[in-house]
Design a protein around this nucleic acid. Sequence first.
DNA 1: GTCTATATAGGGATAGAC
DNA 2: GTCTATCCCTATATAGAC
Lengths: 219, 219
Amino acid sequence: MKPAKRRGRQTARDVTTEDRILNAAHAVFVRSGTAGARMHQIAKEAGVNAALLHYYFRTKDRLAEAVFQRTARALLPAIIRILESDAEIEEKVSRVIDLELAHLSRAPYLPMHLISELAHHPARVQQLVSAVFGGAPDSIGRRVQATLGRQIRARVRARTMHPIEPDQFIVNLMSLCVFPFAARPLLKVLLDIDEPAFHAFIARRRVDLAAFFLRGLRP
Amino acid sequence: MKPAKRRGRQTARDVTTEDRILNAAHAVFVRSGTAGARMHQIAKEAGVNAALLHYYFRTKDRLAEAVFQRTARALLPAIIRILESDAEIEEKVSRVIDLELAHLSRAPYLPMHLISELAHHPARVQQLVSAVFGGAPDSIGRRVQATLGRQIRARVRARTMHPIEPDQFIVNLMSLCVFPFAARPLLKVLLDIDEPAFHAFIARRRVDLAAFFLRGLRP
DNA sequence: GTCTATATAGGGATAGAC
DNA sequence: GTCTATCCCTATATAGAC
């Protein structure tokens, strides 16, 4: 590979040509959607010839799959690890919110891509499972829900928490973190805010959200 | 137009050929994304010849635009009307949640389509504004936020509500309603639930969500 | 208004030189 | 490993008969 002549803004991980392609593909796929993305555009942003994409990843679909798996590994496993740890519930909520809002501030379209791919391309479902946790097909979700369920029941018995189903707990938490980023273009129109205002909005959220959520759990 | 020979399951509004096309286009665009959608597929599901699509809507993009505007008009205006009405906050929360969950249970991919189109196709932003409210460019969002802001401040002074920014209020409410549907394929994998379990999940949500949200607003 | 037939372009993919 | 040239198919779009 040629070391010089890198066109796009390259990160520290832009070492090998394959990485450059993967990074560019990630950007283009997320920006335009997999169906709308153009191989030539990816090649251009990676600063390489279009034929090289087929040399490294045989087809567009394989390239999309590689990007998808990378996206799936970016955040979900870390969230799951927090939720099934043995930390207190308040601790879990804070840590999940901190992690999600920090990460999504840097990669705002990440969840959109994940969701959109899953919706349009049924094969991705299996790929998600194997990407997030090597072999466990369904047990992951059940395990997290069981852990949370035990914690919640204990707190309800102690009169320090309002009853809530574990799945509703998880979905509420994820909704409040992810949706603002996924719906960013919509919110900008509806709330009439621009880019800096959006960042201020998220900054405020990092301060307020955990407290709002935890008040919702009080008895 | 020929009255017989309708292939797809037709609704009561499948009266004119143009409607049939629009309905089929809606289904295909939402299912496959605009870029992934194929004109032939739309024609097939509408039960008409492919050339007819171009007779009624000159290009694929115009057809996509028509579908988008229809999608935008489906829910947003009603939500906005509730939020800027003079009902009490508790009442607003309940009504928005009821309306959204009922509507999205029938059209789960509606918000995904809206968001995805806005993200991928910058021209849609302007089209959204003119679709939701004829001429008012930005004032809609500001007006809703002002109304809510006044209500919240009054309640905070009366010590019956915890302070919260109007924009955070709106985004929290929308997040909790919309995200579960937008992320449905993801949630099915993560929570290990199938179609009927998802419906049960939403049914439970229609009972619990307003109370959860309102607890989050308590002082 | 609706159909058949066809023009045209764009994009994914390959062959083969270097 | 990387480039140039090119193939081929698919999808949008149009022309024109009925």
